[in-house]
Design a protein around this nucleic acid. Sequence first.
DNA 1: TAGCGCATGTAATATGTTACATGATTTC
DNA 2: GAAATCATGTAACATATTACATGCGCTA
Lengths: 175, 175
Amino acid sequence: MIDYIILGFLLDKEMTGYDIKQKINVSTANFYDASFGSIYPALKRLEAQKLIVSKKSIKKGKFKNIYHILNLGRQTFLDWVKEPLVLHQSRNEYLLKIFFYRYLSKEDVVSRITQFIKLLLEYKANLVKIEPLVASQADFFQLSTLRYGLDSYQFLIDWFQQYLITIDQEYSKPE
Amino acid sequence: MIDYIILGFLLDKEMTGYDIKQKINVSTANFYDASFGSIYPALKRLEAQKLIVSKKSIKKGKFKNIYHILNLGRQTFLDWVKEPLVLHQSRNEYLLKIFFYRYLSKEDVVSRITQFIKLLLEYKANLVKIEPLVASQADFFQLSTLRYGLDSYQFLIDWFQQYLITIDQEYSKPE
DNA sequence: TAGCGCATGTAATATGTTACATGATTTC
DNA sequence: GAAATCATGTAACATATTACATGCGCTA
């Protein structure tokens, strides 16, 4: 999938691997992050497949590989983006832990859920913080992915707050 | 992580690799699935680490490896389940596509979101269908992971239905 | 001159899936 | 007797992360 992020960004303008990582950090990182260890090999692969092409630039003794998208890359990207949206139910480690929470005392359950809500509030606050910056640079759809993030966090916060209430009311651990 | 599901199930009772896969299918598969290709090697690994032990059973010429949890496995599992809940923001391919939806016509966007909502409704309906069965067998926390799934799907359905309205009202693709 | 940002890249490791390979028993 | 279910296991492949390795230019 990293291939498609790269193609999508290069469709907009030429970039180095480093640029792509920067761009990911400020735009898609919340739902799709990638490390240099996946970006650089991907760039080589995409070039070998003739989807993109690099131009070496040497300035002040410092060399850069600047990548451009080719027609084949453009077409590959557009084919992908037009594909139906699918839902990959991904691994959810916190749900897996909760699945086995019968092995915890009620106090331990409550403290862990409470801590988790704090974490969610922090994550949401981080998104709120970057929202104005994103809003000034992003298009309608890009901004909507941020809004999705905010709304998702709010949903989770509400859900787990209600969960705490339910646990308190309905659940008594059999000892 | 597959290790912890296995340990968690074996804590309850002895099982074969096949049993574990069955159990995953009817309980955690919605947020944590695993294939035989990961279960069997995990069982060997866990036995080599003395977390579990197997007992060969031969009945009617058919052999089974029945696994039991050992004290070390019990402790390893309990340590894990007591760890704080963390949020791994996982890959979200549909959001990544939407991030690049400026490259689609408004009609294409609407049709894909509409189709996606149908998919979400199907997924939710599947959970609704199995809810009575789960409710009859699962404990409070296990059932709550199913409820979480139902509520998550409903959140997504609502969100994307509102999104369609917003797209219709606010977004006009620059051509 | 120390540290940070820019810039690239590889090797080791992690963690899994899919497909293949086998074969018995149970059910229709 | 065919098909589904039970039951195990490996090999090839996919996909990525983390840590390591390198080195320049700018700034405090």
